[in-house]
Design a protein around this nucleic acid. Structure first.
Lengths: 246, 246
DNA sequence: ATGTGAGGTCTTGTATACAGTCTCCTAAAC
DNA sequence: GTTTAGGAGACTGTATACAAGACCTCACAT
């Protein structure tokens, strides 16, 4: 078309190789925190971590220059990260004005539980329907890690393992778009969790265990019911802590 | 902290002004296709449009240089757009290799219906619960536009109005994260719609109307049931067209 | 003929540079 | 005293430049 493709010009085999890379990239991204290959990925993860941990407070301005300097990179990776975090709802971007950490009102936090009940209920049902032994094993492994973290009193990690468990359920559902959608949703849930539900950090474990059993047993109705009950319990706890119990 | 904030350094009033801008930005983005203020927004919208329309085929490579040249911009806005579309699931990015238009297999397209049933069912229920007259009016207006488009035979626009209707339901639910989540989901649904369900382009209108009525009446159960039935009907139609009917 | 390595081209990732815009502060005019 | 123009500073948006990696081609060895 435009004469640029003069030389070698992407042949057919490139696509095969690319597909392989795609698979490995997905695997690494799903199983672990991902072995970051680019600065942008690291910056995104770091900014997200700082937002979730509260290191970057709600409403705080995100000035590209300063973040770039603080992280030792140029503005470009920072900009792309901010755009990504914006689509995930962690950052509010206003054209030509700037970006700020999103403000999560109590009402919005509460609204999130409605979405989670619908989506996580579906994920649990689909996971039970699949009834994959490998997925069940993974759920148990994550639960074990969470239990150890609770016993060792490493409370910061408990939140991470909680999210990991929910993410594992999402992936066990075997629905790629559901997984894509749930990742940011669960991180948002962790954001809420980090700010409020300190008291509940032990409780959720037994609920996770019972959900895990229902999934492993392939009982769709029970799995969905337990997932829904689990999120509903978290909501009650949240409402109680924020003084808006009904 | 770091001595940079020497000069004026964002005072207190800036936040007020910024809040106003935020509101107007949200409004324009929600009500219309948004009066794009930056090249990046335009590029994102254009690329998304080309993907949804099939102009950019599934699996097609997205070479930053070429897209930038084709759109008459530099690589930067294109890169940011690609990252955004990646989080929405329209583009598959592999570090250091490149980006391609996502490949939506028949199985993945089918899986999307499961998610839609759960999410759109919730949206309809919440919208009915809100029972906002303004939202109901908006639903009727979109329906009217869709009807006119059907009668005038402008089939390309029918798909857009369909999506508009579903988006209006999402916004009527008054749950900000649900809206954020549903926007890309509905666009993905339109992607599927554009490729297959040509035959159903008239049918959906009556189903939309009945959903609209249930929402306006504030009947939560009925609204959810009709939304679920609507998506389920679309799935049946999809399965029939792809020859995978059960 | 098949497998293997070096060179070249293309493309991405990152950094830097420039232009436009927004905000704030100051100062003059009414 | 209040309001309104003007200018300086800061930050975003966009473009350009440079570095590094990946893929293809071709030659060479087995």
């Amino acid at each position: 078309m435009d004469g640029r493709r003069a030389g070698g010009g992407g042949g057919g085999r490139a696509l095969v190789v690319r597909a392989l890379y795609t698979i490995s990239a997905l695997m690494s991204d799903m199983t672990l925190g991902a072995s970051h290959q680019t600065l942008r990925d690291e910056v995104t993860a770091e900014l997200r971590r700082r937002i979730l941990s509260g290191e970057l407070g709600q409403g705080e301005r995100l000035v590209e220059d300063r973040l770039a300097a603080a992280l030792g990179v140029s503005r470009n990776p920072v900009r792309e990260s901010i755009r990504i975090l914006s689509t995930e709802g962690f950052v509010q971007v206003v054209p030509r004005i700037g970006a700020t950490v999103a403000v999560l009102s109590v009402e919005e936090a509460e609204e999130l539980f409605d979405v989670r009940i619908a989506v996580e209920g579906l994920a649990a049902r689909l996971a039970a329907r699949k009834r994959s032994p490998a997925a069940a094993d993974r759920l148990r492994r994550v639960l074990e890690q969470a239990r150890e973290a609770v016993e060792a009193g490493r409370l910061e990690q408990v939140a991470d393992y909680n999210t990991d468990f929910h993410l594992a359920v999402a992936e066990a559902a075997g629905n790629s778009y559901l997984t894509l959608m749930m990742k940011p949703m669960l991180q948002r849930a962790q954001w809420v969790f980090n700010r409020t539900a300190a008291a509940r950090k032990g409780d959720s474990w037994s609920e996770h265990l019972s959900l895990c059993e229902a999934v492993a047993a392939g009982d769709e109705d029970e799995a969905q019911a337990r997932a829904v009950a689990h999120v509903a319990a978290a909501r009650r706890s949240f409402l109680a802590e924020t003084g808006r119990a009904r």
